[in-house]
Design a protein around this nucleic acid. Sequence first.
DNA 1: GAGATCAGTGTAAGCGCTTACACGGCATCG
DNA 2: CGATGCCGTGTAAGCGCTTACACTGATCTC
Lengths: 352, 352
Amino acid sequence: MTAKAPQAPRPVPTLEDVARLAGVSTATVSRCLNTPDRVVKSTRDRVMSAVDQLGYAPNFGARALAAKRTNTIGAIIPTMENAIFARGLQAFQEELGLHGMTLLVASSSYSEDVEREQIRTLCARGADALLLIGHHRSQGTLDFLEARSVPVLVAWVYDPDKPQPSIGFDNRAAMREMAELVIAKGHRRIGVISAPCDSNDRASERVQGIREAMAAHGLPADAMALHETPYSIENGAAAFRQVMDCPDPPTAVMCGNDVLAVGALRAARQMGLSVPDDVSITGFDDIELAQLVDPPLTTVHVPHRDMGRMAARLLVQQLNGDGPMASTRLDTYLCDRETLGVAPRQRRHIAR
Amino acid sequence: MTAKAPQAPRPVPTLEDVARLAGVSTATVSRCLNTPDRVVKSTRDRVMSAVDQLGYAPNFGARALAAKRTNTIGAIIPTMENAIFARGLQAFQEELGLHGMTLLVASSSYSEDVEREQIRTLCARGADALLLIGHHRSQGTLDFLEARSVPVLVAWVYDPDKPQPSIGFDNRAAMREMAELVIAKGHRRIGVISAPCDSNDRASERVQGIREAMAAHGLPADAMALHETPYSIENGAAAFRQVMDCPDPPTAVMCGNDVLAVGALRAARQMGLSVPDDVSITGFDDIELAQLVDPPLTTVHVPHRDMGRMAARLLVQQLNGDGPMASTRLDTYLCDRETLGVAPRQRRHIAR
DNA sequence: GAGATCAGTGTAAGCGCTTACACGGCATCG
DNA sequence: CGATGCCGTGTAAGCGCTTACACTGATCTC
C-alpha cells in the first residue's frame, strides 16, 4: 500500500537536489554542512530537513576534488591476520575519530611491492597523510612519497636518524634486554625464531639485539640457531621442531613475536617437552593471547595503544600545520611470566 | 648534491600533466590506463613512461565522479577487536582482489547508530555495494539503502525470507544442534552467556536454538540461566562467575561465541573448577583460539572462509549484471573437543 | 576507384562539490 | 544621515577525470 514508484531508478540525491528542495543555492547547502555557524538558523533548519527527507549524503569524491582535503589518513600494515597490529590500530583510529578524521587501512602481506601499490592506492584515494610500519622501503617508493609530498609517519620502530619521523620503540634494545634475562638464567645455546629479516627492520633489529647480548657475554655467534619463517602459529610450531631437531638443541628459544612463540609452545607440548623445565620460550609484543596460553608467555610488552594514540596526535598536529613531526620513543618492558626458567642441566653433555 | 629544487612544493601530477609530457590528449592517457588495448602500442609506451616519470597516480575521487563506478565494496563489521570476523573478511578481500575490486572496511562497535553513519560514509565514498552483518537494522537505514539503491548482501546469517539476500548459516539450528548434544550428555541445568540479543540477530537466534532444544526435551524454561554481555574475554569470565554464583549452578555453560567461552574457561580455572569434570563449557565460531586453549574448546565450526569467498562472488556477479543475488546457506558442524563432558552427579541435590 | 568501414586519437561536456568573489540589506558611527 | 562594515546568501569557476561524439587516414569491398 505504500506509495512507491514501481521501478523508480531514483538517482542518488545531489547537493543541487537539496538546494532546490530547500529553496536556496548550492553554496548555502554546502555551508550548512561544513560551516553551519555561517548560516542563519532558519535557513539551516530548512536545509537540514531537506537533507533528511532526501537521504542525502555528500559525494566524497566530489568533495575531495573541490576541497583538496579528505580528512582521511591511510595506514598500511603488514597483516591483519594476527592481532599484532590490531590493538595499536584500534587506538589510532579512535584518536583520529576524536579529531574528525577517518582511517583507511590496507595490508601489504609483508610484501614490498604490494605495499608500494597500496601506497599509490591510498594516495589516489586522497589520504592526507600515511602511517607506515617500519623503515624498510624501496627508493622508488620513497621518491613517490616525496613527489606527492604526503606526510608520512613510520610506526612500530624508533629511529631518529632516519629522514622520516617515526613513533615506536627500540626493537633492538627491547630484545637485547630479554636476551640478557635469558642469558642470566643460565642459557647458553639459544634458538631464535624470527620473521624473515630482509625487508623487515623490526625483525632484524630484534635478532640483532639478541646477537649483541650474546656477544656482550662472550657467547660465540654459532651458539645461536636462527630460523626465519613468516609469522603464524603453524610456522612457529614448525620452526620450533626444526630448531630442536639437532644433537645439541638450545635450552631456550626466543621468538620474534608472540604468534611464533605460541606456535613454539604448542609444538613443545606436542613433543612432550615441558616448558620451562625442559625448554624456555619467549615472545615479543604481549598480545592478548600471551596471557591465555598455558603456561602464560614470558614476553616483551609493547605499548600498542599508546603508540597508536600518539601516532594519531602527531599526524593531526602536522596536518594542522603545527610544524613537522618529531620522532618519539616509547618504552617497552619485560613481562616475565612462566615460560622462561633457568637453564636445565645440560644432560646431553653430561651423558657423553 | 642531488639536483633538487629547494622548496619546490611540486603539486601532484594530473592526467593533463601526463598528456602534455607524452604529447597526447587527456583522453588518450585515460584510455591507456583503463582500456589499454584501444591504444596503439607506440603511443601507450610513450604515455606509460610519462606516467612513471611523473609518479602519476589517478585521482580516485575524480575518477569515481566521472565514471560513476568505484570498483570498491564496503563492509561494515561489528568489531575488529576479536578475531570473529577477521578470517571471513580476509577471504572476502582476497576474492574481491581476484576480480579487481577493493574492500573498504568499517566497524560499528555493535551500535546501530554507528552502523548507520558508516553506511552513509561508505556510500559517500562510492561503494558499489555493501556487505553487512546480520539483518537487524532500523527502518531509516533500510530506507536510505533503498533510496540509494546500493546492492546489499547480508552475511553471517541465512534467512531467505528477508527481502535482502543473505549468505551464511542457520544460527538457530547450529546452536540447537549443540544444545541437543549438551542435553544428550545429561545436562539439565544450562547456563547461557550471550551477547546482548536485541539488535543482534545472530545472538538471539543462537539463544533461541537452545530454548528450542530444551523445550523439545521437556526442560522447563527456567532451567536456563541467561546472562548477556558484550563479546570479550573479560566479560565472558565475569559472566561465568555470575552464572555460577547461585545455589544450584548449571552443569554446562553454553557461550554465544568462542571469545566468551575462553573467558568462561579462564574464570572456571580461577575458581578451581575443572572443565569438563565439574562444569562443561561450549563456544561458537571455532576461531583459532578455540584450539589453543587448554582444554581445547568444544564449539560450532563456522565456514568463515567459504562464507567470505562466496559473499565476494555473489556481489561481483550482481555488479556484473548477472541478476539479483540468491540467499545462500552454508553448513556448520560441531567440533566436539574437550570442554564438554557428561553431566556430573548433582551433588547438591543428593546432599540435601 | 568511389564509397563504406574501422582503428586511433582529439574535443569537450559534464560528474558533484567547495569557495573566492560579488551583492544587497541592515546596524553602526561620527 | 551618508559612509562604513558586516552578515547571509548567491553566482560561477574550477577540482581531475571519463566518455560520447567527431574527426582523420588507412584498409576493404564491389
